Amino acid sequence: MSTPTIASLKAAWSRRDYSTNRASRGAVDLLANGRPVTPEALAGRTGMSVDQARAHVGRIRAEGAEVVDGAIVGLALTLHPTGHRFRVRGHDLYTWCGFDALFLPIMLGERAEATSTCPVTGAEIQLTVQPDGTVSAATPGTVVVGIVGEEVTSCCSVAGPDSAICAQMPFFASREVGERWLPGHPGVAIVDLDEAREIARAYVEECR
């Protein structure tokens, strides 16, 4: 696998609608309130029938969504602890990966705070992400993120925090650190936060 370019990442993610279709957007919006999303709640949020909502829950569960007792508890945004903490609407939640923490504020239209750990150095990473995806504060100021390209997403049909997709999209303390990690992860690019914002916007805004 080759290292994807920024242009190819934008194109690939704009074609991927795993968590950006109407029903899943509704589920993510409800998860941001800090509670499991039942089929009844999803139906009320999206206008689907309850049977349609149950069918949607079953479909996304097969694709990697976290479902407990018939209710969604994780779909990029999750109630279950991961290495990526995500505070939004006053709730302490989590994301499946670093890139999720960059596109979810755009999807939700909400300011969020993300805290993670560099997998190479162990350094704590803190970000404030605005509703348009702009990172208005970052500690350290050299943070970058890994983003997988289409060669990875096309051969991995299941998402989730431990999937080949999400496990390869962490934050790094710097580009130099990310480049040290990269050789063992073909099909992944190390992306600065401004470039990641453009990819995140392509994912959220062009996948309808």
Rank of each mutant, 00 (worst) to 15 (best):
I6G: 04
L9M: 05
L9F: 08
S19D: 12
N21Y: 03
R22C: 00
A23W: 09
V28F: 00
L31V: 00
G34N: 08
V37D: 01
A41H: 05
L42C: 06
A43G: 02
R45V: 00
M48T: 02
D51C: 08
A53I: 08
V57S: 01
G64M: 03
A65S: 13
V67T: 01
V67I: 09
I72Y: 07
G74W: 01
A76M: 07
T78D: 05
G83S: 11
R85P: 04
V88Y: 05
G90H: 10
H91G: 02
L93Q: 04
L93F: 06
Y94A: 14
G98Y: 08
D100S: 10
D100R: 03
L102Q: 06
F103M: 06
L108K: 12
E110M: 11
A112T: 06
T117S: 13
I125W: 03
Q126H: 13
Q130I: 01
D132S: 07
T134E: 13
S136M: 07
A138Y: 02
T142Q: 08
V143R: 01
G146R: 00
V148R: 07
E151C: 11
V152F: 04
T153W: 12
S154R: 15
S154L: 11
C155F: 10
G160A: 04
D162S: 14
F171Q: 02
R175S: 12
L182F: 07
P183I: 08
D194Y: 08
D194K: 12
E195T: 10
E198H: 15
I199D: 06
V204Q: 03
V204S: 02
